[in-house]
Design a protein around this nucleic acid. Structure first.
Ligand SMILES: [Mn+2]
Ligand SMILES: [Mn+2]
Ligand SMILES: [Zn+2]
Ligand SMILES: [Zn+2]
Lengths: 143, 143
DNA sequence: GGCTTATCAACAATCGTTGTTGATTAGCAG
DNA sequence: CTGCTAATCAACAACGATTGTTGATAAGCC
């Protein structure tokens, strides 16, 4: 993801105004690797700016996504996750608590010849599902 | 997935009654590889049994899932897909129309040593995203 | 046959998300 | 600095998918 300064430039270039709300979200997202939900970003933003609205958070995330600066992930954990990392990478997902962690690896996966069934494939993502350390420990007690 | 006859047996064994609604869903799901939504199954079921309710479809799908006879997939296409195929396999997903197709291949993917970040991984799914043939053709006209 | 479960219609409610409106604020080009 | 315009706000409504509820009716199965 671009730095807050770069995003500021980009927004100005595109005719979007650079408001304190947007700048805060630029900061909250930069280097953020926990794949936050809109709600969790709203909570973090509210701590610094109590009057910010959830609607504005959603709106800014949508703007960033359509500019290709973040990606929206649906891991089946109830709500969308927002990922400022737009590079090719994969994910570990906890089936219990919904935690999502990055996994960088080049698995060199591609659809075997003749098996694409007419699809033009753009990318391949691997999702590893299981339990995170925290949830695993909870399990051992109730084994 | 088990055959309708096997599911009938399983349901009886577990004390679930074998109703015409449930039997119809067993049939509609058996060998079904289009990853139907609850709504589409409801539509198909309604054609044969106009009085069946959407509620009953959801309920039976939920029962089958907790018995491990089908799996529920969330591909980020708005609604859940139900997959009677519980073997390890992967998917091609059309970003435009939401079509989901099976892909059988052994990619032999695993989390590289020391990178699991505390996760105990149970399985790995690969999702290939792109455009299906139908949606691809629509694109070419609007270059 | 009778107990128990399933199903039904008909709703209400949930959750995450998007739309709307009208008033207020404020970014930024000139 | 000023004015145009976009952004934000609060306060809702609405959405779509899914689940819950209720009370009545039907039907599976021992
Ligand atoms: Mn990521
Ligand atoms: Mn499948
Ligand atoms: Zn966890
Ligand atoms: Zn398509």
């Amino acid at each position: 993801m671009k730095t807050p300064a770069e995003l500021t430039e980009l927004f100005r270039t595109r005719g979007f105004k650079v408001t304190p709300q947007r700048q805060m979200l630029f900061r909250l997202l930069h280097g953020n690797d926990v794949h936050p939900t809109a709600e969790s970003l709203y909570a973090a933003a509210s701590a610094e700016m109590p009057t910010i609205s959830l609607r504005t958070v959603y709106q800014t995330l949508s703007d960033l996504e359509s500019m290709g600066e973040i990606q929206q992930l649906d891991m089946g954990t109830g709500s969308s996750r927002f990922d400022p990392n737009t590079d090719v990478h994969h994910h570990l997902v906890c089936e219990r608590c919904g935690k999502v962690r990055d996994l960088y690896a080049d698995f060199a996966i591609s659809v075997p010849r003749g098996r694409a069934q007419g699809f033009t494939v753009k990318n391949a993502e691997v999702v590893f599902r299981g339990l995170c350390d925290t949830c695993k420990q909870g399990d051992e007690h109730h084994g």
